[in-house]
Amino acid sequence: MEINWAPFFDQIINGVTVGSFYALIALGYTMVYGVLKMINFAHSEIFMMGSYTGLFTLTILTNLGLYERAPLLVVIVTFLAGMTGAALTGVTVERLAYRPLRRAARLAPLISAIGASIFLQELVRLLPNLGEAVTGISIGGADIFPQAVQDKVVSALSSFGGNYPKAYPGILNLGGIDIGEVYISYGRMIVVVTSIAMMAFLYFLVMRTRLGKAMRAVSEDKDTAALMGVNVDQVISRTFLIGSALAGIAGVMVGMYYLQIKVTMGFIPGIKAFTAAVLGGIGNIPGAMLGGYTLGLAESLGVLVLPAVYKDIVAFSLLVLTLVFKPTGILGEAVSGKRM
């Protein structure tokens, strides 16, 4: 009997693409967990901020007519903007919402993180409204800002955030090649290659540089690291910076790949990337990559057997099952159980 393997390979390619997104986001969870032993609940919103900042930049550059003239440069700037937006968000959240709580009871940073997460989502959603409210302030019937200023501010803020989903230009729609019966788009290749390059860079950073060594020292024991002259605050801050920047790249790529973004876009990929981090072994960098690709493949191959609507349920179930039966993940340290 002739078996048609094409759908199978299609799903594998799909799984590797989606897995790249999960892996990139999962790295942020895992790095923060490594140094702080906390789950950065707001990471999914950091990812979202990256996507929005990227789109905002891209829109401005396109409106200036730069995209026609130097498309590659514009794309690179977009990625850098996405990374910067996410990184700034991540570092700010750490500084304002987590650092004051570093010695607090264990539920406090978690609740603070949930608060930060809600706040960021709502901030982006309400930006135009906030702009309108602020520029609309009047004293004794006289507007402080002229109508023209108000319109400009609101329109600028609307091109950043807002209640409705935003269309992302399909820059990655570049065609593709056929290998036998399997079609691989260049967009997917770019996603996978970029992700793997970023992960390789991160791995090098952590294993070979001074900062990486300091990160590993902080992860082992903050107090001892501080005694050894490591600037713990700075290391934590930089960990957030790097992890968030990676999420920013993922944010821009997700936007370009799925062509639409909204303020709640971080929730599902966030929880899945967290699943990936746990699956691979939280706190473990290669584990996050492995977990990301495993989850991506499991999900897309699952579609061959189950209706697609059950995809999310499969991922959540995988999370619960991993935590129950193999809480250490594939490569990582124990997340439950007792320690001395």
């Binding site: 609740i111 603070s112 608060g115 930060a116 997460s117």
Partner: peptide, 10 residues
């Protein structure tokens, strides 16, 4: 709410 949660914890 989000803001309040963060401020409250601190």
């Amino acid at each position: 709410y989000g803001l309040l949660l963060v401020i409250m914890m601190i």
